[in-house]
Design a protein around this nucleic acid. Structure first.
Lengths: 203, 203
DNA sequence: GCAATAACTTGACACTGTCAAGATAGCTCC
DNA sequence: GGAGCTATCTTGACAGTGTCAAGTTATTGC
């Protein structure tokens, strides 16, 4: 007569997506440490072990969240690229702006995917999203790579710069909302550094 | 008659340091996720709640480990600085090399202190160590800061670059031990980028 | 030697990830 | 339209975790 289970959700497969939504919300509310399978389940109105069915374990859920993070990251960059001209450097600046757009629109995902935390690298959804993000960088950098040098050198240079810059911008914005650096200033800084290198004759 | 407690350690206050040692070892063996108060206690031969006395909570232990990480980080940079000449750029290169030395000598601490994880910012030991590290960067950058610009701009530029570079070097070393970029290559890359900026007339 | 305090230990509780087993909703097939 | 089948969950259990309160003992100060 009385059923022993108390199903609250429709079994339509929508839970998987709801759990990712809940995870992103948790990241935003409590930071990376606050992410928990049980809390996500509760937030999505499911039982405590429900996430296990879709993601197997915590790393699985984290990986799914990171995959979404990378997809949104790609969207931010391609959006800026679509507005940019054809000049190679304009396009490089465009993806950098996309990077900053992403960091300010989804700070919790930005911090999460670049936290250094390990994800399931076998996961196809995650791999394609992450690879696509890096592919955008690679293609945008390609025309600027000096002949005979490893493309990865320029890629990591740009990646490091914009990442450190975004990180700084985020933390500074928190302390001082109206303050903000702009890319041209970075360009002039690099020019300055290069002058220092030249005067030293080491290049 | 029979004692209810079973003390195994001398109560000489050495536990605090042993717990930090255990924590560093755990980080090395199992990564940041493997760090746990109870495991550290067990590794140090103490009871499960002993760390609570010295560090109050997990963040307290993490902060103490990070403080040690920053101290070793400072040592690596000052070591290289002591061997460098007086030229401002040589000194900048020296702290970058120190950064790389540190990353390869203590990869687990390197990853830990720069993981983006929050530490107890009120902790005096941690604050002074972290501030000292940033002070070394600031002082070394100071002579190279363009007149009228915010010193923080150059600092974050250098910091981002060397961090991204160290990160790349670490991951590459794992795949391809004999491969390694050198700083001069980075310098020439920046020169190249600056030329691109100039030809565009945007600087 | 005695009291005070520092440096722990023990025990408990709530919470977590993860697994095994059960239940049921919705589909397919006859 | 009923019988099964399977995807999609729920329940229950267990070991591990952080953290607190209370007890115990070694060491110190007098």
């Amino acid at each position: 007569m009385t059923s022993t289970t108390s199903p609250r959700r429709k079994r339509d497969g929508s839970l998987r997506n709801d759990l990712i939504d809940a995870g992103v919300a948790l990241l935003r509310e409590r930071g990376a440490d606050g992410l928990s399978l049980r809390e996500c389940a509760s937030k999505a109105g499911a039982s405590h072990a429900a996430p296990g069915y879709h993601f197997k374990n915590l790393m699985g859920l984290s990986t799914a969240i990171a995959a979404r993070g990378y997809r949104l990251f790609c969207e931010a960059m391609t959006q800026r690229l679509s507005e940019a001209g054809e000049d190679s450097f304009s396009r490089l600046e465009a993806i950098c702006h996309g990077y900053l757009d992403y960091a300010s629109a989804y700070p919790e995902l930005f911090l999460f995917i670049f936290s250094g935390q390990k994800f399931n690298e076998g996961d196809e959804e995650f791999d394609t999203a992450a690879r696509k993000a890096y592919g955008i960088l690679r293609e945008t950098c390609a025309p600027l790579v000096p002949a005979g040098s490893d493309p990865a050198d320029l890629e990591i240079l740009v990646w490091s710069l914009v990442h450190g810059y975004a990180h700084l911008t985020m933390t500074r914005k928190k302390e001082n909302p109206e303050l903000g650096l702009t890319w041209p200033e970075l360009g002039s800084l690099m020019k300055h550094l290069e002058r220092a290198l030249q005067s030293r004759g080491s290049v």
